[in-house]
């Protein structure tokens, strides 16, 4: 549907159940998803933009659909920063909005977003990048449950020595309550980047999804088969998991 809208140079909003893509003359100009932190969250989380600066920008330029331009013209962010942050938010939200789903897809012709023009992207590039990102996640750790479930640090992990600084920030917030999307919002980072960090941490055996309380009826053979199929080059973390799965059968 996105590529068809691009070919007819459509302008409006493509609404899906996990997000919205905004098009101007067939190019993607913005995207939003409930899962992905918005550009306002990313610019505010580290204090780059104070909340009142953001409120003022919306008030002054929101109705004209030129908030991006206002932020730069008033010196609140530089042109380069706005483009970097906006592209990050666009591809991040598009990844979730374009995820396979059985929900309805609608297009509202003429709808525009208040951020206004920043740096439009070809629809083909957005679609291609979304597929590449999905493949990248599966290559890192082929267990999508870590994308949506809260994670906790693995009790056996020696975290200070093994987690890189950016991943440690994620690890510090992994409390078994926050989902990766919550962690992304707290850090002001794209949600996809947090999915990558969480899958890398899971692959390294540093985090795990909390075992459900009803884990009394495990199905180890399929777990074992899945673990075996996962990698032709088993590492220590994998062997530990394998051992745990086998012990659970005894």
């Amino acid at each position: 549907m996105l590529l068809r809208l691009a070919s007819e140079r459509a302008t409006g909003a493509l609404l899906r159940d996990r997000g919205t893509l905004y098009l101007v003359e067939g190019q993607v100009v913005h995207a939003e998803s409930p899962v992905a932190p918005g550009i306002d969250v990313m610019l505010s989380a580290t204090g780059r933009l104070r909340p009142d600066g953001w409120t003022q920008a919306i008030r002054e330029a929101g109705a004209d659909g030129a908030v991006g331009r206002y932020l730069v013209d008033s010196g609140l962010v530089s042109g380069g920063e706005l483009e970097i942050c906006h592209l990050g938010a666009l591809f991040d939200a598009a990844f979730f909005a374009l995820a396979p789903s059985s929900g309805p897809t609608r297009f509202r012709y003429g709808a525009a977003h208040w951020i206004g023009p920043v740096r439009p992207v070809a629809a083909e590039a957005v679609e291609r990048e979304t597929l590449r990102r999905r493949a990248l996640l599966d290559r890192l750790w082929a267990h999508p449950e870590t994308d949506t479930a809260p994670v906790v640090p693995s009790p056996r992990s020696a975290r200070p020595r093994t987690a890189a600084p950016r991943q440690r920030a994620v690890l510090d917030l992994a409390d078994g309550v926050r989902t990766p999307a919550d962690i992304a919002r707290a850090l002001g980072r794209p949600a996809f980047h947090t999915l990558i960090d969480v899958r890398r941490l899971a692959a390294a055996g540093l985090v795990e999804t909390p075992r459900p309380a009803a884990a009394a009826a495990p199905t180890p053979p399929s777990d074992v088969a899945r673990l075996m199929a996962m990698s032709a080059d088993p590492d220590v973390a994998l062997l530990r998991r394998l051992r745990d799965a086998l012990e659970a059968t005894l």
């Binding site: 580290t46 020595r161 890189a164 600084p165 950016r166 991943q167 440690r168 920030a169 850090l187």
Partner: peptide
């Protein structure tokens, strides 16, 4: 390079622990 402590040690100038690798 950015994530391995050999190249990016923690707690040094330009990379304090509170920086979280920003």
């Amino acid at each position: 390079v950015a994530e391995h402590p050999t190249f990016a040690p923690l707690g040094t100038a330009g990379g304090p622990e509170t920086d979280h690798g920003k």
